[in-house]
């Protein structure tokens, strides 16, 4: 019955999701409804304690998410903080977000999910998640359930009162972390303002202050902004995702800010590494770097060798708009 998901059901869902199975539409509806009840209770700034493993953008690269659990430990044995951008571009955004939703429902204090700029109706209509939902479920219902749920995701996390975590970066209208707490976040991400900036902004070494971003949303911010924000809020590090890094991570401003990127070989072609950041109980930070999961490649070899054999196991091509 929609709305009622027992813990037993969740374990079964999680087990099926680890095998990359899609859950039925009614189950997605129930899961999204249930997680909203949970997320609505979270503050815009969630305070958590180390140890925790922090994960950057995933973008539907489901096999690489599994690789993260293999490398970093499975939930709930390892605590996780995800920094957003679970969907779009990759092939398995639905499976990725469904698994994370199930884990959050099952272990609500072991895993935290922050909102990224892609967790939003507008962006997902352009960058693939909408298309994927319609192809996998035959309608946009599942996309609606998920994007309605995205409105409830928190905007930031503070680890042990010392590490400020957000998807994008800082905002010229936010000086104190307390100012984040008063944002009405239960809505589509606006085009501008503090909520937009938190999910869209990027650090920029060459400009010390705030500048307009070439992305057309959010700002770039430099060293002097970072220093001021850290002093005022008594924190010692800013941790964010949002930008691809060739080496899987990047540390800027004299170790004051880190970018963590968790989608290796982004879009099957970038050849970049990925990482997760493990924060220890004394605040120590360790980037656990990894490459693309072997599953990403394993079917490809036979395609190369023998097209006749290979075509046997291939999915049926689906009708594409414009080519009907």
């Amino acid at each position: 019955m929609p709305g009622l998901v027992s813990s037993l059901d969740l374990d079964e869902c999680i087990e099926r999701l680890y095998k990359r199975e899609l859950l039925p539409e009614v189950t997605i509806e129930a899961l999204c409804s249930k997680i909203k009840e949970l997320l609505i209770k979270e503050s815009n700034v969630v305070h958590i304690s180390a140890p925790v493993t922090v994960v950057g953008d995933i973008h539907g690269q489901f096999y690489d998410l599994l690789e993260i659990f293999r490398i970093g430990g499975y939930c709930p044995d390892t605590n996780y903080l995800f920094l957003g951008d679970y969907v779009d571009r990759g092939l398995f955004s639905v499976e990725t977000i469904t698994l994370l939703v199930c884990l959050k429902l099952r272990y609500p204090t072991r895993i935290y999910l922050i909102r990224g700029n892609h967790e939003c109706r507008g962006i997902t209509q352009s960058y693939g998640f909408y298309t994927e939902c319609v192809r996998k479920y035959g309608s946009a219902n599942v996309w609606s359930y998920f994007t309605d749920m995205f409105d409830f995701l928190t905007l930031s996390v503070v680890i042990d009162n010392s590490i400020f975590c957000v998807h994008g970066g800082l905002s010229p209208t936010i000086h104190s972390i307390d100012q984040i707490k008063i944002i009405d976040r239960f809505r589509e991400i606006p085009h501008e303002g503090p909520m937009a900036d938190l999910v869209w902004s990027d650090p920029e070494e060459s400009k010390p202050d705030f500048s307009l971003s070439p992305r057309g949303a959010g700002y770039t911010f430099g060293l002097s902004i970072v220093k001021k924000f850290m002093d005022r809020n008594d924190i010692n590090h800013i941790l964010r995702a949002h930008q691809l890094c060739q080496e899987g991570y990047e540390v800027l401003f004299d170790d004051r800010l880190s970018t963590v990127w968790s989608a290796p070989n982004y879009c099957y072609r970038c050849g970049n590494l990925a990482s997760v950041l493990e924060v220890g109980i004394n605040g120590e930070r360790f980037f656990n770097v990894f490459d693309a999961a072997p599953e990403n490649e394993e079917h490809s070899q036979m395609l190369v060798e023998d097209p006749n054999v290979a075509t046997l196991g291939l999915p049926q091509p689906q009708p594409v708009e414009y080519f009907l």
């Binding site: 779009d88 571009r89 700029n117 892609h118 507008g122 962006i123 352009s126 960058y127 085009h191 869209w200 990027d202 971003s213 070439p214 992305r215 057309g216 949303a217 949002h242 930008q243 691809l244 982004y266 879009c267 970038c270 970049n272």
Partner: peptide, 18 residues
């Protein structure tokens, strides 16, 4: 076309104006 800075073009706001 749309992208901004990063890989598959860092996402650019669809409402972005130049």
């Amino acid at each position: 076309p749309t992208g901004g800075g990063n890989i598959p073009g860092p996402t650019k706001a669809s409402w972005a104006k130049k």
